[in-house]
Amino acid sequence: MKKITSLLFPIVSGVALIAIWYGIIILFKIPIYVLPTPGQIITAAWTERHAMLASALLTGQGAVLGFTCAVVGGFLLSMIMAFSLRLKKSLYPYILVLQMTPVIILAPIFVLWLGQGLPSIVAITFMICFFPIVASTTSGFMSVDKNLLEVFKMCHATKLQEIRYLRIPSAMPYFLTGVKIAGTLAPIGAITGDFLAGSAQNGVGGIGFMAITYFSQLQTASLYASGLVACLLGFGFVGSISLLHWVLLHKWHDSLIKKE
């Protein structure tokens, strides 16, 4: 019963929203190039489905590659910084500097270095995803329970054992929180990358590139449809990361244990 009502609310609100949408278009006689109806957007998405799928795959590829580099790089860098306070002090300010530099300015630099296309898109996605992972994972490595450290000390664990059996599992929830945030940013990063540094290889561009094309041709319904595709891509990304989070933590971490 509870499940039905919890499903009912978003369905009702969704239907209401679409009705208002149609109402406004009919009432104010808004032309299609300003605001298409949901029906027209779906139709546009369907007629352009091959192009849409191709560009979603291209953007997805950029997002996955940039995200993966950020996850691996961020984890390793955090681990290194967690074990040498000096190294952390030397590196962290510059990581912040990189984070503070807007992507809009970094993008042309990447294009100069790597050219238009996938490598630049991956680099831009990486830049956007990297910081949240480093910030949360570092704090995870640093905030290990002092009492558990004493247990390891009493067992005369080596530094390596302490990392493997204590610090990495302790940091896992923090790391995964960073990964989750990065996961929501990755598709946006890749689309931004497309937008700023994308190119149409063999006539296929990423979602960001496609959006520019539709905009310049005033194909507003298709422009909206590309937004819809980007949204689906984002949900797919976040969904898979949530699944990973659950798989790794559901057996022991407070955030996922259902207590009766």
Partner: peptide
């Protein structure tokens, strides 16, 4: 030597 702490101090995972 073995030490039993005030809290159980078990590894939750």
């Amino acid at each position: 030597l073995a030490f039993v702490f005030q809290d159980a101090n078990l590894l939750p995972w």
